[in-house]
Amino acid sequence: MTQPIAAPASATPEADTSEEKRLGLWLTLPAQLLVLFIALFPICMQIYISLTDWSPLDGIPWYRAYELWIGLLNYVDLAGDPRFWSALWRTCIVMAICVPVQFFLGLGLAILFVDDFPGKRVLYSTLLVPMMVVPAVAGYMFFMLFQSGGPVNDLLSLFAGRPVTIAWLSDPDLALFAVIVSDIWQWTPLMFLILLAGMVSVPQDQQMAAVLLGASWTRRFFTIVLPRMKTIIIIAIAIRVIENFKVFDNFYIMTGGGPGVATETISIYIYKVTQQELIWGYVAAIALAILIVLSIVSALAINKMKGAK
């Protein structure tokens, strides 16, 4: 049985003996240190470097980056950098296509799986396979599939009755389509997994009552099941939106962001500036801008969810 947990069952416990206080402190210390190590110092460093024109090729260590001080110029550049904005826009488009498609496919599958039928366990496990494949390997799989002499065109030829040789990955629009397909393939199972767990947890009694009153299946679904799944649906979509915003592995392996910048998402854009153009001062500015925007958005979202409860 699955159950959504709104809040911890009991209030936060309090340590009462000095032994417990000591233990509580020591147990949480390593995690605290790791968080500090990855948060505090890097963020300060990031702010500092973002105000300079520093690059690892300059031959001066990062702490002397002040010699290349340029103030807020990186941020001014960023505001007028069309490649940055188009990468951001593209990331949003990918998200706006992938997440709804994954959601509706996942929901449909969850409806089919909600009650027991022979073979359920095997089919369920097999359905989950894509999400466990290493994303980089998935990217490679789809790279093979979408070659112009590859199996996708082979299948299309079968239906078309003549040889099809579409160059999927070298056409800007088709390449974007191909990477979106790979994302949908990999992450629909995750939506399905979470939505099914949520659907199973909807209490049966009300539904039984509705059946006795003669409510149709669709009516029961939309008035009883779906409203009860609200929290889970929000969680599932939030997880995919967050992950989709970061997307890199399969996209980069399939197209390298290309052709041109046709499949360049925000992570790929930052990666390329980091590795190829090596202007790390500028990269730090981009990264900070994204961190700030995400912090604001997440703080708003968390506040709203708290308010909703």
């Binding site: 936060t12 416990p13 309090e14 340590a15 417990e20 206080k21 233990l23 509580g24 402190l25 147990l27 949480t28 995690a31 605290q32 968080v35 990855i38 948060a39 110092f41 890097p42 963020i43 460093m45 990031q46 470097i49 967050i242 915003f245 970061k246 890199f248 925000i266 992570s267 930052i270 990666y271 980091t274 790390w280 990269v283 730090a284 981009i286 990264a287 900070l288 994204i290 961190l291 995400l294 912090s295 997440s298 968390i302």
Partner: peptide, 26 residues
């Protein structure tokens, strides 16, 4: 058990939220 580290849940969720690419320079 002891109520220590009350800041960790949120801090760790935020750590999860950020794209790794955005903190990789430091």
């Amino acid at each position: 058990r002891f109520g220590y580290g009350g800041n960790l849940p949120l801090a760790l969720i935020q750590l999860r939220l950020f794209p790794p690419m955005a903190v990789m320079i430091p």
